[in-house]
Design a protein around this nucleic acid. Structure first.
Lengths: 208, 208
DNA sequence: TTTAAAAATAATGTATACATCAAAATATTT
DNA sequence: AAATATTTTGATGTATACATTATTTTTAAA
């Protein structure tokens, strides 16, 4: 369950413990988060647990002392912002990406075709991370980074249910970037995210 | 020193006290933030002060226990994101804004021409807030809301030094929205923010 | 039986003491 | 005097007790 933890201030181990409990479904959407309960469960005092909860609230994984369960609207909102920001980042990638980074991007595509579940998960995450980082814009990188946890919940779904054409779309984006075609890269990224959104919405509706 | 505090979780009074000390320059960029010092100064214990500091770190007003002093790069990054998000929101405004909200937007323009310093400050903030809210996207609204504090630092500068054409640009944007011309509204908003950026950069350079 | 009030319980907010870590100042050695 | 140890001071991290607020349960009344 890898995640780029950015260059942000260090945090207490309980932060990752709680986050992972949410991401792997041990704490499911709607569960009440009680400080003292987590504190005794994880073997820390309330103080660092409180800090971790605050941080998870900032990231949107906890809302009003409950584990978030994103609605269809939340999902649409999140993807709307992602399309704007990652679309723009894709233009930057087409303009600025070095040969070495292009090579890395290609590797992510290849792992996406042949890797294990966990490998595919982190390759997909890395694919998007390389593109976002190419924006060279810390504000943008931080915003996407803060969305990562919720994005993760859905990326998991998309990979688990083996969404068709996912890797093909990544390859198309990679090719547009390689060709230095900024407009095409942006458009393809936006279409790609739109497909992800539709796939997630589809699953969300079947579940309810 | 008004700010829309969003619909987020309530906070301790010390949060606003510290934030305002930063925004009005009482605590200037680079100042070391010491928990115990603020606690005794403001008359609270360290616990709520710590919370408030964490939140200000999250908003970017405090970085590594110091009051932020945004660099030229920070400014460019922030405005790049604003141009994407507020540009998109302007399209939404042109499409969805009600007559009542249009009227409010017009009032902001009028106050911008005739109001006092404080009135102009909050009218300008309100102008942007109405447009951003019209996106009807909580994720986007929250991102911009979190940027507000740092934006405030610069909006202050822009109004204080009486940037030329600021209100004319607002009026142009208002007219495009009123005409329901989404593409034009987006383009004008982006140009407007680009001008703001250049004006701030200009001042930032003269100061150093 | 339903509703409202009161009491009891649970959870979070706040203060504070102590522990650990980081930085600065002093002392010691070369 | 310069460089390195050592001590001291300062600041943040952590645990915990108490205060306040919110929630639930119980009791009483309609």
């Amino acid at each position: 369950m890898l995640r780029n933890q950015g260059s942000r201030s260090s945090h207490h181990p309980s932060y990752e413990m709680i986050r992972d409990k949410i991401l792997n479904g041990e704490l499911e959407g709607g569960t009440k988060i009680v400080e003292e309960k987590l504190a005794s469960e994880l073997g820390f005092s309330r103080t660092p647990i409180r800090d971790s909860i605050r941080r998870l609230e900032y990231e949107g994984l906890i809302v009003r002392k409950k584990v978030v369960s994103p609605t269809e609207k939340d999902l649409r909102n999140l993807f709307e912002v992602r399309m704007l920001l990652e679309g723009s980042a894709s233009k930057a990638a087409a303009t600025f990406l070095s040969d070495k980074e292009l090579e890395e991007l290609k590797e992510c595509v290849d792992i996406g075709r042949n890797g294990s579940f966990e490998e595919i998960m982190s390759a997909n995450e890395r694919f998007h991370a390389i593109i976002v980082n190419s924006s060279n814009n810390d504000v943008m990188i931080n915003i996407i980074d803060r969305m990562q946890s919720i994005i993760y919940l859905f990326r998991h779904t998309v990979v688990f249910y083996n969404r068709p054409f996912l890797i093909d779309e990544h390859e198309d984006i990679y090719n547009a970037i390689k060709e230095r075609n900024a407009e095409k890269a942006e458009a393809l990224m936006q279409e790609h995210l739109q497909k992800d959104l539709e796939f997630c919405l589809h699953l969300l509706q079947r579940r309810q």
